[in-house]
């Protein structure tokens, strides 16, 4: 991976654009952006983005590989789909943002102290190791204790009433903490996911420096 990070990309050349097209979900749409800025204006979290979507697209075309992939921007996307609904060029902007985030994470370039990639990793580990199903109790607790034991206990106490309510209305089973249940043929699912990752990595390897 580290070699991949170091790939030299010349500015205003199509290398990085081609890399994005090959590896990022819906990445082939990036070149079609006409820089009107409607997406940036429509994003409810726009003011918090380091680079608004339309700028991200221009940065990709300008070959700013590190800056794009290390950016926290696409991790702010809440999938509200305002940008997709309004884009006059009909770019699937939300999907591209998630695609870019995913690609950056795979390359190990996603920002370390941003909450969204952390949660995404918990979610994935929970699903991948938990036999193809998300164990909500375990996922919730791992989030409570994400920032240490004291924080975790505080959060748990704060959420006590909701937990009790869910327990009495049979929305939560405390015994799930001891393993829980998995989907059928969880080993087969794991194999399929491993194969998919293998294919993706082979594709990305073409762009190693």
């Amino acid at each position: 991976m580290s070699q991949l990070n170091a790939t030299k990309v010349e500015k205003y050349r199509n290398h990085f654009l081609r890399e994005v097209e090959a590896n990022v979900e819906e990445g082939h749409w990036v070149k079609m952006c006409m820089q009107c800025g409607v997406c940036s204006g429509s994003c409810p979290l726009g003011p918090y983005w380091e680079h608004p979507p339309q700028e991200i697209f221009m940065m990709i075309r300008a070959g700013k590989r590190e800056e794009v992939l290390k950016s926290s921007s696409m991790w702010f996307c809440t999938s509200c789909y305002n940008c997709i609904a309004r884009c006059p060029r009909e770019l699937p902007i939300t999907h591209i943002m998630h695609g870019l985030a995913h690609y950056a994470k795979r390359l190990g370039l996603a920002p370390q102290n941003q909450a969204t990639p952390k949660f995404a990793q918990y979610f994935w580990d929970n699903l991948y190791n938990g036999g193809g199903r998300v164990n909500e109790l375990k996922l919730g607790l791992s989030l409570y204790f994400m920032n240490g034991l004291v924080e975790g206990i505080k959060t748990a106490l704060k959420m006590r009433k909701i937990g009790q309510g869910m327990y009495f209305s049979k929305r939560m089973n405390p015994f799930e903490i001891f393993g829980g249940h998995s989907c059928k043929d969880s080993q087969g699912l794991k194999a399929a996911l491993n194969k998919a990752r293998e294919i993706e990595e082979a594709k990305a390897a073409q762009f190693k420096g």
Binding site: N14, K31, M32, M34, R61
Partner: peptide, 10 residues
Amino acid sequence: GQNKGITFTK
């Protein structure tokens, strides 16, 4: 033109 990969910038 964009589809063919021409880069446009302001």
